[in-house]
């Protein structure tokens, strides 16, 4: 079904694709059940396509207040189970965690003079506080990612302004904190093993999320019939 939606999404005009992308972001960040959310999106893509065929404006169909439209959709849809909700946040943490260390490793290889560690094959040796600092920053990034998506209908200047301010505050805070509080160690990590471990965790997390989402959607259908 997902593939079919992607295929039809290619036939959408740029304007309509943008409208639907915003709806998608909003629904995802408001913890709508994954399966129900996909069904709604393919309905909406279908609606937009039929609008295009008839030569009508899809923006008019959604109305002047798309956020209110989304709220109506959410009100009338099954929400995510608590476990599904945790796993969908965990998904982003695992993804960022998986990519961050190899990212630092790449920076080390590309700009050895500016980075504090050193590299031998896939072994990356660096101060613990350096890694911790970037993980705290990542934590703020992931939360910010949700914040931006949840507010996709607020003026972006306000949303990104808040995001940037909070981000800078944390950046300075962690810098100060780590200099004075943490007793530092030097650690060595094998980047390859790191990547594989997190990839496996990520796949397990996504599978579990999918199973929970489908169980809820299935339970919904069962009560319906």
């Amino acid at each position: 079904m997902n593939n079919e939606r992607m295929r039809s999404a290619r036939e959408l005009t740029k304007e309509n694709r943008h409208i639907i992308m915003k709806i998608e972001q909003y629904l995802e960040a408001r913890y709508i059940n994954e399966v129900a959310g996909e069904e709604i999106l393919s309905d909406i893509v279908g609606m937009a396509l039929e609008c295009q065929e008839r030569g009508e404006s899809f923006a008019d169909v959604i109305g002047t207040n798309p956020e209110a439209f989304c709220r109506e959709l959410i009100k009338n849809s099954p929400r995510q189970h608590f476990h599904e909700r945790i796993l969908s946040v965990l998904h982003w943490f695992l993804l960022f965690a998986m990519l961050l260390l190899p990212g630092l490793y790449l920076i080390e290889i590309l700009f050895p003079t500016y980075s504090p560690g050193f590299v031998k094959n896939f072994e990356y040796t660096v101060r613990f506080s350096y890694i911790l600092k970037y993980y705290i920053i990542m934590f703020v990034l992931v939360i910010g990612w949700y914040f931006v998506r949840m507010n996709s209908y607020k003026p972006s200047r306000y949303v990104f302004g808040t995001y940037f301010a909070v981000f800078m505050l944390f950046f300075l805070f962690t810098d100060g904190l780590l200099k004075f509080v943490i007793r530092d160690h030097v650690i060595t990590v094998n980047v390859l093993i790191w990547l594989i471990t997190f990839a496996v965790l990520l796949i397990m997390c996504d599978l579990a999320r999918r199973v929970i989402a489908m169980t809820i959607a299935y339970a919904k259908n069962k009560t319906k019939n």
């Binding site: 709604i40 309905d43 909406i44 169909v61 959604i62 109305g63 959709l73």
Partner: peptide, 20 residues
Amino acid sequence: ISEGTIYPLLLRLEKQGSIV
């Protein structure tokens, strides 16, 4: 009214089991 008005209502009717 538009399809945008009635779609959420259809979702609601479906959720409460009035329509399939």
